[in-house]
């Protein structure tokens, strides 16, 4: 099995960009969620190696999702998607157990560097 990733962001556009970047690099995007509730439902079913999580979402804030997730799955690996000016929220997320963060604008290089740092290259143990 390759490395499996799930993306949580309320903006479809961001999910499309991230999916393209990750899949072109050889990662497998196994699922998407547009809000925290769906994310928490899907996570245990999909068991991804990494969760990309938007820090600001309408229904449930990224940090609330993160808190709930880390409580039930302490080993979960989460990469925070943030924008300039969200330093305080990002710090809070890192304290609650997020493995790293990226800041918009999205650059493939930054995304892939962080993802690889956290879960390794896409095809470590596949063809």
């Amino acid at each position: 099995m390759g490395k499996r990733i799930m993306i949580v962001d309320d903006a479809k556009f961001i999910r499309v960009i991230l999916t393209n970047i990750l899949e072109e690099a050889g990662y497998e995007v196994v699922g998407e969620a547009e809000d925290g509730k769906v994310a928490l439902e899907k996570y245990p079913k999909l068991k991804p190696d990494l969760l990309l999580l938007d820090i600001i979402m309408p229904e449930m804030e990224g940090n609330v999702v993160l808190g709930k997730l880390m409580k039930d799955y302490p080993d979960a690996k989460v990469l925070i998607i943030s924008a300039v000016g969200q330093r305080l929220l990002v710090d809070k997320a890192l304290k609650s157990g997020a493995a790293g963060y990226i800041v918009k604008p999205i650059s493939p290089e930054n995304v892939l560097n962080e993802v690889e740092r956290i879960i390794g290259p896409p095809d470590e143990n596949t063809n």
Binding site: D10, A11, F13, I14, I17, I56, P58, A83, V84, K104, P105, I106
Partner: peptide, 19 residues
Amino acid sequence: IAEIFRITHTIKGNAAAMG
């Protein structure tokens, strides 16, 4: 109002993602 706020927020975020 909350819905309008959310949509403008998404536009802001998407534009930021594009740089």
